[in-house]
Simulated scan of single mutants.
Amino acid sequence: MTRAMTPDEAYANSTYIPDGESYYARWAGQAAAFRATHADAELSVPYGAGARQSYDFFQVSGPAKGTVVFVHGGYWMASSPRDFSHLAAGAVSAGYACAMPSYTLAPDARITDITLEIAAAIGSIARRTTGPIYLTGHSAGGHLVARMACVDMAADWSRRVARIMAISPISDLAPLMETSMNEVLGIDPAEALAQSPVHLARQNMAVTAWVGGAERPAFLDQAQWLGAAWDCDVTIEAQMHHFDVIEGLQTPHSAMMRALLR
């Protein structure tokens, strides 16, 4: 008899990716190398008073066509924009500025609070830019950008959002209540309902869910739940897993970037 998968196993990633633990150092190295070649980058621009309430901003030479905002993952508990600077390469090469906000990590903030921080960050970014805004985020960041599409998050900048791409998103928080992560996240049924995009109405915004075909089944489910709830595009990129699925953001003409900026 096949043993049932535990909730922790369902949402584990690096354990099920060959040499998965090596990605963190690899990303940090690629990010540092990208920043070294972009001396005009503005790092840690504040959008609030909190220690992690800032964003990194990568300029383009000449007028920008718009701005891509990338929100990092890490289950709301780990990582920072500085680990993913290299993912700005596709946007900048295509003529778009790229902003990468940071946010207070759990347990110092609940997911509800983090959601409001990302909204504040986008508001700050919108005030310094012109043209369309494209929001994308990975994993927990996918959840956060999807939340920006919800009716309760409507803001002055919402009308400028041309597309939201939620990459490997968590669209329903309820399953995470059964994982050991919830000892840190502290999600309760009320927050799961109030902060899960699948239970919320969407603004009139174009949304794409993007997920790797080789991801954990739970992440394929989460992306498809969002597609079903919002009747939005769902792209399953064959053979890509939870860590390499974001690599399309590095190349201006990748399928991912074409879908984001179309």
Rank of each mutant, 00 (worst) to 15 (best):
A33W: 13
A174Y: 13
A120C: 08
A32V: 07
G48I: 14
S124Y: 08
T130W: 13
I164G: 02
S54L: 02
D172A: 03
D83S: 15
M5G: 03
R216S: 15
R202L: 03
Y23E: 14
V151K: 15
T37R: 15
V71F: 05
V92P: 00
A119L: 08
G213F: 02
T2E: 08
R3S: 11
Y24A: 13
G248L: 04
A192P: 07
D19Q: 05
G212H: 12
A33T: 11
D113C: 08
F243I: 11
A166C: 05
F34R: 06
P169L: 03
I125E: 04
R127P: 00
Q239E: 14
A154S: 10
A31E: 11
A91D: 06
Q30D: 13
P18I: 09
F58E: 12
A88S: 03
T37D: 11
A255C: 01
A94K: 07
A146E: 02
A149Q: 04
A155S: 11
Q250M: 08
S168N: 10
G66N: 14
S22T: 15
G95W: 07
G62K: 06
A206M: 10
R163H: 10
Y96M: 11
A120I: 09
M1H: 06
T251W: 07
A223N: 06
E215N: 05
G66P: 05
T235D: 13
A146L: 11
G29L: 04
R258K: 15
R52T: 00
S44H: 08
A126R: 01
S54M: 01
H241N: 13
I111W: 03
M165I: 03
D56V: 00
G137F: 05
A228S: 09
H199G: 04
L173D: 09
Y23G: 10
K65F: 02
Q59R: 14
E178V: 07
M257L: 07
S54N: 09
I17Y: 10
W230A: 12
D56F: 09
K65N: 03
G74L: 11
L135C: 01
A228D: 13
F243W: 15
T251R: 15
S158A: 00
G123P: 04
D172M: 00
R216M: 15
V151N: 14
V69R: 02
L200N: 00
V71W: 02
A106L: 10
R128P: 06
T2R: 12
A33K: 09
E215G: 11
L173A: 10
A4T: 09
E183L: 14
I164C: 01
T112D: 11
Q222Y: 14
V198D: 02
Q195M: 06
